[in-house]
Design a protein around this nucleic acid. Structure first.
Lengths: 344, 344
DNA sequence: GACAATCCTGATAGCGCTAACATTAGCAGG
DNA sequence: CCTGCTAATGTTAGCGCTATCAGGATTGTC
């Protein structure tokens, strides 16, 4: 007869180990570790001590399978590199903090197929909810979202038709409002500088709205310039130089984000261009990062943190409304005129 | 007699559903979906079609439990807001891409207890490996890392004693080198500007190394200034003004990161201070974000992307060395003198 | 003292999948 | 037509936990 269980120190611990070490059933250990059900103070203490001594770390995989409950929330965003999504994340984390839910992030790089595969991967872990940027998805992705049977919140944008809930701003309106403000300030020869990103639908909608705003005043864009990749600040300089060289009589430049706008602003200041007198500038996003620039760029904040907060509230089921799903929350960005638009 | 299984459309699908829909056993379906084992082309096609038609998404929780294999790699970092960790993440993602492994990020905000709980949470999902920033952890965290039985890579820093593998630079040496360069350029009255962060051990080590470098030349720091929170660019301006007001004869400012350094640089330029003649400046990190500034700040890049790449290679077991664990990879940052240090 | 109520603990049966082995089909060679 | 193989598929037994229900103590009530 051999020893029944040669105690292998390398094997990872299970409930059984803690149960044996503390002389109670696995079930009781489980109860103690999850603070569920009544357990006497004595056994609770004994179990906790054993668990600590052994260095037991519960296996959530097994737990999730058995309980059909997963404390994870999938968050799918296009990028992490431009401060806008990190801020959304902060709103989400902060709100989820006291709910026991934990965000898990996936990055798509603005690629629809990548979004689809990231979503598939996430859903295969059966999260309690999904927060996903944008309203445009592949057909398959949309189908997955619809049949997942969990709360879905599409964020950032509300110009479209959400699968379930949506929290965001109208980028069309944001563009339109900016156009109105620019025209009201008396600018007429207007250029646009943006990214080459067919799948950045929000940037596209802002430009559409912007064009419409100009159109209402009988104006069309005088010139456009696009970039891809590289340091945004640097690109902003280069593009600004390029567009002003090509079309010197421009009196306003609308940038699709604050970072290239800041690059443009620095370039203009270095050239001694009179901003906002001779040339006005505006960006989009209101990134705090840039607060220390010599002059404040006109911009429009995208309510990033609030979006994160509301989205997380919906997932966590702590909306005041008590509504269960299909919410649609529109936030309204405010124009921050800064120092780069003439006072009307 | 009633229908055996009233087909509930709301229930989430399992292998059994696909198996019934395609007329083969669950095992065969499993094999098809994982591309494992021999399956005839005909059944493979039939199964895939059924899975697609039903919109089946496998349950990785069950899969992981059964196979004792999880394709997740935990990545624990202090912050996402200052571009340094996003770049590390890119290196990691890129390297993990073709390995089937998937990074899952946890943020600690430089709080040791938070690091401990994030680690505990992560380990409870039994990842295939953990990449964690820094060499300093709570006692409990270190114990968990040691007994987890998976590859651990501590990144960013190598001035210390790793649990398993480590990839990083010597921040002590980085600070020391910068001190040497500054002294060689003839600066003597040197100020330091940094963050109030007792748990940012890397910043601390840089400062220690910097002090030592100065000390070797018989110099001590002439003044110091610290901040917490807020827009780094903005804080850089404010702190620079403050320190120069207090100690006007400083001829060099060493910033603990590029962002506050950039703020300082912009402020100095606006004040018309002769940089680098009258006053030299240097930061740390080499953030590409700032490439478009009017003048390039002297800095030292921290090899962020490379660190991510190497760490991921270790986890994925694709190091050329073939070594299995306990690797120690030191990278060497290069000084980028930029335009804010006098040529010696 | 019988009975119910309350508290605490344990036994049992899965959760949805995969490892490992068992079985069957298909086919070449004698 | 049987043996001996390989290729394709199926069967069985868990993975480590938790939901659920079933007790055994202990207490209180009439």
């Amino acid at each position: 007869m051999t020893k029944p269980t040669p105690p292998d120190p390398r094997r990872t611990l299970t409930l059984r180990d803690v149960s044996e070490a503390s002389g109670v059933s696995e079930m009781t250990v489980s109860r103690v570790l999850r603070n569920r059900g009544d357990v006497s103070e004595t056994t609770r203490e004994r179990v906790l001590q054993a668990a600590r001594r052994l260095g037991y770390v519960p296996n959530k995989i097994a737990g999730a399978l058995a309980s059909q409950r997963v404390n994870l929330v999938g968050v799918i965003i296009p990028s992490m590199s431009n401060m806008v999504f990190p801020e959304v994340m902060m709103g989400i984390s902060e709100t989820l903090e006291d709910t026991g839910l934990q965000p898990v992030v996936g990055i798509t790089n603005y690629l629809p197929e990548r979004e689809e595969s990231v979503l598939y991967e996430m859903l295969s872990w059966r999260p309690s909810g999904v927060i996903i940027a944008g309203l445009e998805h592949t057909e398959a992705a949309r189908a997955m979202l619809e049949t997942a049977g969990i709360p879905i919140v599409e964020i950032m944008d509300i110009d479209g038709d959400p699968v379930d809930s949506a929290v965001g701003i109208s980028h069309r309106r944001a563009g339109l409002q900016m156009a109105e403000a620019i025209i009201a300030a008396g600018y007429r020869r207007i250029g646009f500088l943006g990214t080459k990103m067919p799948d950045d639908h929000r940037a596209r909608k802002r430009l559409e709205g912007f064009r419409e705003g100009l159109g209402r005043a009988g104006i069309t864009l005088a010139d456009e310039e696009y970039y891809a990749g590289g340091s945004a600040l640097q690109k902003g300089r280069e593009m600004t130089e390029a567009i002003l060289t090509r079309t010197p009589d421009l009196d306003f430049l609308y940038y699709s984000n604050d970072m290239i706008g800041a690059g443009g602003l620095l370039w203009c200041l270095a050239q001694g261009i009179d901003v906002p007198g001779r040339l006005g500038l505006a960006g989009f996003n209101g990134v705090e990062l840039l607060d220390g620039l010599p002059r404040r760029l006109a911009t429009m904040d995208a309510c990033r943190r609030e979006i994160g907060i509301h989205a997380a509230e919906i997932i966590a089921g702590k909306r005041p409304s008590g509504v269960i799903g299909g919410e649609r929350i529109e936030l309204f960005p405010t124009l921050q005129p800064g120092d780069t638009i003439r006072k009307a």
